[in-house]
Simulated assay, not measured.
Amino acid sequence: MQAARFMVEGHSGGMDATFVQMGVIAAAYLVAVAATPIASWIVGQGRSVGRDEGLDGMRGAAAVAVVGCHLNQYMCAFLGYTNPFIGDHLGILAVQLFFALTGYLFTDRAIIGRIDPFAFYVNRMRRILPLYVFVVITALAIALSYSWKTVAPLDHTLREALSVLAFGLWKSDELWFRGINMLSLVGIAWTLSYE
């Protein structure tokens, strides 16, 4: 029933919206598969002994589905589709799967005494921070390219840039850089780096 209602609500036809959503999600997976070797090389991580690669792979697939869900929402809004039904449901399922698998893996490691809290947090920072900084710098570059005609004092621009960089550490309801609302750029960027 919900799917039938979605088909009626689509901008120029339900089938168009369905194909757009399936294409966005498929593109997210293709990019993830292509970027995996590069990301492993940047982070310097090879195969770890004792890791359950199947479950880690399922967590990775769920994380990509969440990113695909967010990209799908932006794409549907951009194209004028009123209900990103497929992507939203895939995202909800992926979040539940990701956290269930993560909880299982960490509990299993904690029970057998294989979690070193210091190493755990260092590894998380090594994985998340480089990508986060990269996407924030990319978002700032995009904003600068759109606002290059805007005249603003350098100290004000630097304060706004630092605010954008710190957004992932403490979130705020408003985030501006040179007159551009950065939540639309950094919101998805933080999701990408976090996932």
Rank of each mutant, 00 (worst) to 15 (best):
A32E: 02
I188M: 10
F78G: 13
S48P: 04
I111V: 12
A189G: 03
T150F: 10
N181C: 10
H156I: 08
L71R: 06
L90E: 10
V66M: 10
S48N: 11
I188W: 14
L162P: 07
V151A: 11
H11F: 13
A4L: 06
V164Q: 01
A26F: 01
G23I: 00
V33C: 05
I188G: 08
S145P: 04
G54S: 12
D16S: 08
L192Y: 08
Q21I: 00
R114F: 05
V164K: 02
Y104D: 12
L105V: 14
G87Q: 11
V67R: 08
L162D: 09
L154Q: 15
I42R: 08
D88G: 11
Q21V: 00
Q21E: 03
A17I: 01
R51T: 03
T191C: 08
L140R: 05
C76G: 09
D173S: 10
A17T: 01
F78I: 11
F78N: 13
L97R: 15
V133A: 13
R124P: 05
A34M: 02
A110T: 07
Q45F: 00
Q2L: 09
T107R: 09
K149D: 14
Q2F: 06
V95C: 14
L105T: 12
P153E: 09
V67E: 06
F19A: 06
I38T: 04
Y194P: 06
Q45M: 02
A94L: 09
G91L: 07
G187C: 01
H89N: 13
A61F: 03
Q96G: 12
I115A: 04
N72R: 05
G113H: 10
E174C: 14
R159N: 15
D173E: 11
E160D: 07
V135A: 04
G50R: 02
A119T: 07
G68K: 08
V8S: 05
C76L: 07
E160F: 01
E174L: 12
E9N: 10
Q45V: 00
G87Y: 06
E195C: 11
I188Y: 14
W176V: 13
